[in-house]
Design a protein around this nucleic acid. Structure first.
Lengths: 355, 355
DNA sequence: ACAGTGAATGTAATCGGTTACAAACTCAAT
DNA sequence: ATTGAGTTTGTAACCGATTACATTCACTGT
């Protein structure tokens, strides 16, 4: 009437809900233990060829999908990593998200995106939130984060990597480039073609180390050329079209004889271009303009924008690798230096000879 | 010599690793059971005021952070939702990601971002991947997805919502606007100011229902005005500057007497603008151009772009709410219709009187 | 033939919460 | 005082994987 197996089956049914197929089902169908199934997936080489095949076959037949939360709980690894960026609206950050996502996916990790504006306090908060949700690692922009952030990450043993700024001696893993040098390069180029009075539209040097470094780069170049760079030739402004148009106008009011405007990034440069245009000034004949980032449209503008190209996508990919290496306990480079290129286009030219 | 308590304490130590503080620690410190602690957080009103205070106090004192994976495992809810978009580079998708992220965070959910290009097969793959990682819900762009996607989502009981296209009678929850009508509105406006020969730069009508609908909107408007719209006046192209410049050039080659070019979105319109400019044509004097989306820079271009504004951010927020409502088993609107605005600027004008 | 070694596999405890169910308690109505 | 309904709290099973440890197995060298 009654037989053991049916009893057993019933208890099995009780355990799992309606549809969901678990590792036990796969194990049963493949005629092995759950441990073996787990190994077949997570450490294939520790399992014999025959069994591996049987297991994958069973898994396919049952359309088995591992339960992530269970995996995370027992292995103490969520397989999620996070990225905290100022905004997703700027294409350079979008590119980084995209590349990080792709590379991370390839390495078996998912990506959580958090947005922090350009504000270190909000950043700290968002990082905490990510930690709370249990990410294994985090990619950060810049190196200038609240001390408590570093403390939190270290105390909870969460992998992290700073990007965008290279620092050979930093205790924090980083992959980036030399912002000061990059900006210095543009400045030197401008100086080399004869510019003496250069204005700067900068990012927020208080909140952003990249802005600080880039401005420093300009200062260095000017200094070593023996040129002055008084504060009135510098304007700090947000990364928005209207803000940068305004900044551009202000600068020209105070320094009407400027022959070039260097901008922290392409967005600001675009704004400057538009403003100059509507002021009736011609670029580069009347005044030169430079950007930074080489966004897609930079080459299409007229005049096409002189700018600096940085391999943002590659940077994010390397960051993903650094994170995963940390998580796996493998070796990883403490600091990685990326190249950049000065891209000279039509928005810059020697200044008009002055009467 | 030996006492029970110490024995017990030891076993407790064995359970949890080094630092991590669990719900049991909080329970102990607050002098209540773990169930009560859990309730104090997840269903505060089912717990007495006094105890709730004691629990939160204990949790704070211990800097307790709930273990997400454990929560997910036992509650069968990951508290992650996903979004699948074509690319993060286009500002409208970036905006949606941003808004969804914010609203979702407010509702206690994290956001996973997946990128699918403009390709339904890749989309299906990415959706599967999200399901695999265990999201509770997914926001999708458009309504035109592989049948197996809908099957998968329904069979696994995963919440989802289509966005961007409104469809009152669709069986699938959606929040969006009427693409055909929006584009129709621009066309009617152009016709009303005298344009007879209009060219179209469209998106990929095979892969994108939005492109299909918008083109249909133009067709409707032309038809009801008794105007022809032969295929040679339509060009399908990718959402990139160079592609759209090329498309623009092609169109003018075949239809040199066109007086207006309607573009699927602002990016393409920008490309068209640039191309026309470099061809020596003036906008709007020689030819009118329209976009769609009203991106940040659209108003800054010269000429400022005539386009359509859609509340992308609000749409994503509503989508978040629909998803969460589904997950909570609350009521939710099956279809939500959003408004759009025709924004007339300087890139459109009546056509020049023909000799 | 046999101990020794390393690889393949199985058993079952464990991760840290949630929640079904039971127990205890409160308070109003009888 | 007693009952009963409703509320608050506790007990412990459970979610679905991973993995430490035990066991089995196949070979190798002597």
């Amino acid at each position: 009437m009654d037989n053991e197996p049916s009893e057993e089956r019933r208890s099995t049914r009780l355990r799992k809900g309606s549809g969901s197929i678990g590792i036990r089902d796969v194990a049963e169908r493949a005629g092995v233990s759950t441990a073996t199934v787990s190994r077949a997936f997570n450490a294939p080489k520790s399992v014999s060829e025959t069994i591996r095949r049987k297991v994958t076959e069973a898994a396919n037949a049952l359309a088995y999908i591992p339960h992530n939360a269970a995996r995370a709980l027992s292995s103490q690894r969520s397989r999620n990593i996070g990225i905290v960026i100022p905004t997703i609206q700027n294409s350079i950050f979008a590119t980084q998200v995209e590349s990080l996502q792709q590379r991370a996916a390839g390495l078996g990790y998912n990506l959580l995106v958090a947005l922090a504006g350009f504000n270190r306090d909000i950043e700290a908060e968002k990082i905490q939130q990510l930690v709370r949700t249990g990410v294994d690692g985090i990619m950060l922009i810049g190196a200038d984060h609240r001390a408590e952030v570093y403390r939190l990450l270290q105390s909870r043993d969460i992998a992290y990597v700073n990007t965008s700024v290279f620092n050979a001696t930093s205790p924090h893993p980083n992959v980036g480039f030399n912002n000061a040098e990059a900006m210095s390069r543009i400045a030197k180029y401008l100086i080399s073609i004869g510019h003496l009075k250069i204005c700067v539209i900068s990012g927020d040097v208080v909140e952003s180390d990249r802005a600080r470094l880039r401005l420093e780069g300009i200062r260095n170049a000017m200094k070593s050329a023996g040129l002055p760079l008084p504060d009135e030739q510098i304007r700090i402004c947000a990364y928005e079209m209207s803000a940068s148009r305004q900044a551009c106008r202000d600068l020209l009011n105070r320094t009407p004889d400027a022959t070039a405007i260097m901008c922290h990034n392409d967005v600001q440069a675009f704004g400057a271009l538009l403003e100059l245009q509507s002021l009736g000034l011609r670029v580069p004949e009347d005044i030169s303009v430079t950007g930074f980032d080489d966004l897609e449209w930079a080459r299409h503008l007229s005049p096409a924008l002189t700018t600096v190209r940085v391999p943002w996508g590659k940077m994010a990919e390397l960051a993903a690798e650094v994170l995963v290496a940390q998580l796996n306990g493998s070796e990883f480079p403490q600091a990685t230096l990326l190249d950049f290129d000065l891209v000279v286009r039509d928005s810059t030219a020697p200044p008009r000879p002055r009467p």
